[in-house]
Amino acid sequence: MRTSIILCLLLMMIVDTSIAQEESGKINDSINKIYVGTYTKKEGHVDGKAKGIYLVNQNSDTGALEFKGTVAEVVNPSFVKVGRMGKYLFAVSELGANDGANGFIYSYEILKDGMLKQISKNSSGSYAPCHIALDRSGKYVFVSNYVGGVVMSYKINEDGSLAPNQKINLKNPDKSHAHSVKISGDNRYAYIADLGNDKIWIFEFREGSLTPHEQQFVDLEKGAGPRHMSFAKNGSFAYSINELNSSISVFEVLKNGGLRLIQNISSLPASFKQRNSAADIRMHPSGKFIYASNRGHDSIAIFKIEDSGKLTNIDFVPVAGKTPRNFTLSPYGKYLYAASQDTGNVTIYKINPDNGKLKPQEPVFEIKTPVCLEFVK
């Protein structure tokens, strides 16, 4: 009896320690896997030099990165996304009209050594697929095509293959540039950022299908160019990074899933007057800070999230490279990694958990034409 009590106490101590480590961001010296989406050939906006999808190991204690090699050879895998439980990886092949009839989305099994085994290959429904999203159940995949105003959804089969599920045709397809899909935390609503139409389209999401919401869309400023979105931890506020006018739009999320604009704030310092295009936006796991990337100013903008949901700028931190398109945060928010596609490197920052500020780490990690960074969680 006494032995059983002692064993129970020991188990409770281990669990409590593990939880405390997770909450503080102090985790052991384990290795995390990061898959890197890239460009493999020259396009109008990039000189791709990569070979396909790369695998990088991250030391969760020091933040250091180690290149492990090419794990899948595919043309322009510019966006990659890991499925639930880290079993599968999905990747676009960003092809244009000169490359074939359409772009593609691949699904891969993630093997124990991190290598990828191709499971399926599907048409993306149009050209230049540029973003992948999952619903909260992990059963459906959404692909946004930059050309043609098309968003495709797929059902994930038990073996990891994808089955076409629904094709969404946005209005004004010649003008539309669908850049991303964001699913609400309760899995009831979907938001499509349409850069070309300066709109965020709103849909209800039920049983795998999207149907137009009663508030079909929310308009942004003309020439804003909504690109990616992030949600507050409690789901009450939404944040859109706008590529063309380098701003962040803040929305109150209404009880019925609609959006109400409450703030527009620049992603740039007021003194910067040169050309810029904003790219990505990420919420810190604490829910206290939000980060955005600038291409041109070549920086990461840091904002504090006020109780009202509105943003207050904290800092602008330069990246050690050019064109930081995508960036990501480590699973517990200890480090931020910014991929600079035009200089072929990744800047590593340590995050101050108290004020959200970033401290660059040395050395800068070299890797060819990195575009998207995705942790296996």
Rank of each mutant, 00 (worst) to 15 (best):
Q118N: 09
I248K: 11
P77E: 00
K33R: 15
E43L: 15
S30C: 07
L7K: 15
N234A: 10
G100V: 02
A163V: 13
A178L: 05
K199A: 01
A339T: 04
L9N: 12
E43Q: 15
L336P: 10
I31L: 11
Y54V: 00
I202C: 02
L134T: 04
C372A: 07
P363G: 00
S230C: 11
F251N: 12
A178C: 11
I262H: 12
G208P: 10
A224R: 01
A270Y: 11
G185A: 10
N57L: 09
L162I: 14
M12P: 02
V253H: 08
N256E: 13
N157H: 13
F205H: 13
K41C: 02
S286E: 05
Q274L: 14
P353Q: 05
Y127Q: 09
P212R: 06
D280M: 06
A338T: 04
V364A: 07
I241F: 06
K171W: 04
L336N: 09
I19N: 04
S120M: 07
S184D: 06
M115N: 15
I305W: 14
S236H: 13
V319N: 02
R136V: 01
P77Y: 01
Y349M: 04
L373C: 04
S126E: 03
G356W: 08
G208N: 10
Y335G: 02
I262C: 10
V150G: 08
P324D: 02
I132M: 05
S267D: 03
K199M: 09
S137Y: 08
F237L: 09
M12S: 13
S246F: 08
K87A: 05
C130Y: 05
A270G: 11
I27D: 03
E207C: 03
K175E: 08
V80Q: 01
P331L: 03
L116G: 01
Y146R: 14
P331I: 01
E66F: 00
R295L: 07
F289L: 02
N242S: 08
V141N: 10
P370S: 06
F237I: 02
I314Y: 06
I302Y: 09
N345E: 03
K359F: 11
D219H: 12
E22H: 14
G138E: 03
K273Y: 08
S247G: 06
L7Y: 14
A72L: 00
K26G: 06
P360N: 13
G138H: 12
E362A: 14
D99I: 03
D113C: 04
L9E: 13
S249Q: 09
G148F: 12
S299L: 01
V364S: 01
K357L: 14
A190D: 03
S247W: 05
K139W: 02
I31T: 15
N187R: 13
G83H: 05
M283E: 09
A97L: 14
T40W: 01
E243T: 03
D219G: 08
S60R: 14
V46A: 15
F217A: 06
P318L: 03
I262F: 07
Q118T: 06
E374L: 04
E214G: 06
E43P: 00
C372P: 04
I168A: 05
V376L: 15
K304Y: 12
L311F: 13
